[in-house]
Simulated scan of single mutants.
Amino acid sequence: MAKGTSPALRKFSASNGDSRRAPGIRNPKTELEAAIQRFVDLYDFAPIGYVSFDRAGRIEEANLAATELLGERRDLLIGRPFAFYVGDLDSFMRHLLYCRTSQQQVETELQLKPRNGKQIPALLCSRPITSTTRNGALLYQTAIMDLSERKRAEEALRAKEAELEAIINRTPFMLTRCSDDLRYRLVSRAYARMLGRTPEEIAGKPIIEIMGEEGLKAISPHIEKVLRGRTAEFETDVSFRSVGAPCLHCVYTPDRDSKGNVIGWFASIIDITRRKRAEAALQKSKKLLEERVRERTHELRVANKELEGEIARRKGLEGEILEISDREQQRLGQELHDGLCQHLTAVAFMARSVALRLKNHRVIEVNDIEKIAQLVNDAATDMRNLS
């Protein structure tokens, strides 16, 4: 140390040259190693598989998740071509080519072929890096994401969508799904058939383009109601361009997103035009029947009055007939009394006369006996005539 140096500076220089460090002074080498170890641990124990391969596609680095995904020990993976574990070689070669010609992240979906032979759908996300452990060599650090769960979910979703589409297309009811900006998102074949179109021609179109202003005006109050989150049910004549105005029974149900916000509505629609026509025809028939019933009732009342009059007249005639019959009976009785009694009196008188003559032993005149017989015969004839 040169002369003139202050004692404090000399003390500092002496302490700085001592191999022992004072308490509280950090060791950069130790911290760097710890940071590197933390990075290695994060890399090794990451839940996503990571590999780094060179321009030729040989694996230079791999974490534990990658070894588990590929079904191979790390010491066997290092130095082996990644293509060895790819089921779709063309896709991987295109991926490697894009990595060589681009400085951006390259993503490719392909099929991995682990050692167990069961292919796995995966997504490769590669980004170029400069390796400090490989003397600055260019490597492509690649995240390998297992898409099995996502593919299964997508397949299940496609199956559900196909099932829903089959239900929508086969149901006799008309179904639509509309957005809050008044556009068709989905329509059933039955709905499209009513309009003389295909579902593809209607989906995505504004409602006003399909229905026209008059038709949209007819359903606007119900759209406002369903967009406020309430179910709307109604029957009305709805006008469509080039179709007319069929009478429809509609039920609008709010369509909500995952947060519960109304983003549109579902519509279940039934064409009730024929039913309404039948109801109108029935109502007309009912009214006509009521008129006919009223007319018939009036006719029956008139006929009833006429019948009552006829009954009254016949009752009068019956009384007259009974009265005439009584008088006739009286006349007959009187005639019987006058005529028959006279004959019987004459018979009795003649018989008395004959009896007196016989008593006196006098001769009986034949004429007297014939006279009695004649009177009896006349009485019998009068009785037959009267009867």
Rank of each mutant, 00 (worst) to 15 (best):
R185H: 07
L175T: 12
E209P: 04
G212P: 02
E209Y: 02
T198M: 05
E209H: 05
I202R: 05
E155A: 13
A190C: 10
R183T: 12
D146R: 13
E154L: 15
Y191D: 06
I144Y: 01
E155P: 05
E154W: 02
M174D: 08
D180R: 15
E200I: 05
E154I: 08
S148P: 06
M194H: 07
I210C: 15
R150W: 08
S188M: 01
A159Y: 02
A203R: 04
R158H: 08
R158W: 02
R183N: 06
Y191C: 06
I167L: 15
G196A: 00
K160D: 07
E161M: 02
R152W: 09
S188N: 05
E154R: 09
A153S: 10
E163M: 08
L182W: 03
G212T: 02
D146S: 12
R158L: 05
G196F: 01
V187W: 00
L157C: 03
G212D: 00
T176N: 07
M145C: 15
P199K: 01
M145W: 01
S148M: 10
R150M: 15
R197N: 07
N169K: 10
E200R: 12
L186M: 07
K205Y: 00
K151W: 03
E201A: 14
S179E: 11
L147R: 15
E149S: 15
T198W: 03
A153T: 10
T171K: 04
R170I: 07
R150I: 10
R193M: 04
T176V: 14
A153H: 06
Y184V: 04
V187C: 09
G212S: 01
T176A: 15
A192P: 04
R189C: 03
I210T: 14
K205I: 02
A166Q: 07
